[in-house]
Design a binder for these strands. Structure first.
Lengths: 135, 135
DNA sequence: GTGACTGCAAACGCTTTGCAATTGA
DNA sequence: TCAATTGCAAAGCGTTTGCAGTCAC
């Protein structure tokens, strides 16, 4: 798990808390909230404080080691950035989320650049709607 | 201002508070937050409670008289729905927001439908990035 | 008159912060 | 050793809620 080393290399300390947060992020199959990270970490190592979760996520975000996704609602979601950027289709009916690869948005990016002179930074995009099962 | 009548027709009461909230929404040039609505309403009619703003916005949303936009961050933005759906390009550097018309996203919609069997409900989309001045 | 509406105050959920105690290098 | 990191408790922010009083119809 090289990201443990990565933290050290950048001059930060490796603590059990940070190690476990990294592990949880690593094992997570999809985006998780600070709340979920906290729950999972506490299952293994009781009494890690929530503010530690938040501070660690801030740090990892600053170091580009996690991606932060605002999927709507009032929560933020995080995932390991080595899992690549991608986007989400979220069914407003059943809640299913479909991941789509970043490249699918290249035509959109080009259009925004050509027509609006705008360079989009599309790391996460949440698009709401209806999935097949629900239409 | 027919939306005042519209409320009545649907069986709701017209109060000074609701009237002013509608006016503020009407005069707003762009999306505004409940906070801003509150400030503007209070400038004319002191002491309208914030919960009234929230409850009125909920009502108007239910009646499809306002659109709610989650532009990221922890705030919600509102605007009169008769101003039409549109999207936003938000410069992460200078904060400028550029409105773009809904039709610009038709190719994207078609792609999501064809490739992912997903029917997007794209009423508001916020795309972050860099505007011309900031690149 | 009466139920829809408002103001108030308290609580919510998620996140941030100041500070003293702890701990990794 | 000693600055970086943590836990704790409190506060921040935008929003929601229960309730008693008021007001549009």
């Amino acid at each position: 798990m090289s990201c443990h080393q990565e933290l050290k290399d950048k001059g930060y300390r490796m603590t059990p808390q940070r190690s476990m947060i990294l592990d949880v992020l690593h094992q997570a199959e999809k985006h998780i909230t600070p709340e979920e990270i906290h729950k999972q970490v506490c299952a293994r190592f009781p009494e890690v404080n929530k503010s530690t979760i938040y501070r660690t996520l801030d740090l990892l975000k600053k170091l580009d080691m996690v991606d932060e996704a605002d999927l709507g609602g009032n929560k933020l979601y995080y995932h390991h950035s080595d899992k690549g950027h991608h986007h989400h289709l979220i069914c407003q009916n059943c809640g299913r989320t479909i991941e789509i690869e970043e490249e699918a948005f290249n035509p959109l990016k080009d259009m925004l650049k050509d027509k609006y002179n705008f360079s989009p930074d599309i790391r996460h995009l949440a698009i709401f709607g209806q999935c097949v099962n629900c239409t």
